[in-house]
């Protein structure tokens, strides 16, 4: 059923964008966390988005993907830690400062996170609009024969 697949596709994107939003919030909250369970400063986390078929693909769907391509939803397939080096700040009074007086702060840039947050929320809105369009088309089709 086309309309339900459309809704499923939009919903998958909403879930993915919300996961991304959670990660961004976590990154911003931990922008100054110098201690973690694994040791060392907090590392920025990012979601990996992968296009995927709605529902479990059948043999036919997998085959047709090689030919014409079928519409795909989106899925968060991994949450990766940014392995770039931590931000070093000279603050000898900080309890986690090294012998030279430098503190290793998380590799989180608030400005980058804010920009990511805006793209995530815009993408979320676009998918909400798409879902609303699906709903209104399905409702319109139900008006037939009245």
């Amino acid at each position: 059923m086309d309309f339900f697949s459309s809704l499923e596709i939009s919903a998958s994107a909403l879930t993915a964008e919300r996961t991304r939003m959670n990660l961004i919030a976590g990154n911003m909250a931990n922008a100054n966390s110098t201690r973690t369970a694994e040791g060392g400063p907090y590392k920025r986390k990012d979601a990996v988005f992968t296009a995927r078929q709605p529902g479990a693909p059948t043999f036919g769907e997998t085959l047709s993907r090689f030919g014409s391509g079928t519409p795909t939803g989106v899925e968060v397939t991994a949450i990766l830690e940014d392995q770039s080096s931590p931000r070093l700040q000279h603050d000898p009074k900080h309890p986690d400062a090294d012998e030279k007086g430098f503190v290793a702060l998380p590799n989180v840039s608030i400005i980058e996170e804010m920009a990511d947050m805006i793209t995530a929320s815009r993408a979320y809105e676009a998918n909400i609009t798409a879902a609303q369009a699906t709903k209104s088309m399905a409702m319109k089709a139900l008006e037939l024969g009245q």
Binding site: D2, I9, S12, F49, P71, G73, A126, A133, T134, M137
Partner: peptide
């Protein structure tokens, strides 16, 4: 025409859903 427009909508929704997926190409 209605059937095909519903199908078209599904492809458009798929493109919007993947607006942030790396290396995704629109259909």
């Amino acid at each position: 025409n209605l059937d095909l427009r519903a199908k078209n909508h599904m492809y458009l929704a798929g493109n919007v859903a993947n607006a942030e997926t790396p290396y995704y190409r629109s259909k």
